[in-house]
């Protein structure tokens, strides 16, 4: 079995673990982490697809995709976390009022 395929299976397992927890958890922070693990699995698949053996240079296009994906993901994560913090503040102030 080739190295690339081995790491691809690793990526698919990450996707499986992430989806499993994503569906079952009700905690918001855990959901964010699960989506990040999902993305790491997808990125691993791309990086594995780009690998062309120890001698040849890897395909740079998937690498560029993953770099872009990482930045997009950290952005979306930041937005989700800002929403979670804001909601928390609002719920807290309601708790205090009652």
């Amino acid at each position: 079995m080739s190295t690339a395929l081995l790491y691809s299976f690793g990526g698919i397992l990450l996707i499986g673990v992430a989806l499993h927890r994503l569906v079952l958890t009700t905690d918001l922070l855990r959901r964010v982490v699960a989506l990040n693990v999902f993305a790491a699995g997808i990125a691993s698949l791309l990086i594995a697809a780009a690998y062309r053996g120890p001698e040849a240079a890897a395909d740079p296009v998937p690498h560029a995709f993953v770099l872009t994906g990482i930045v997009v993901l950290v952005s979306t994560t930041a937005a989700a976390l800002a929403l979670i913090r804001r909601l928390d503040d609002l719920e807290r102030s309601v708790d205090h009022d009652t």
Binding site: A40, A50, Y51, A57, A58, L67
Partner: peptide, 12 residues
Amino acid sequence: VRLQAPDVALAE
């Protein structure tokens, strides 16, 4: 890094 993607590994 093992898969020859040092650029992306740095960013990750």
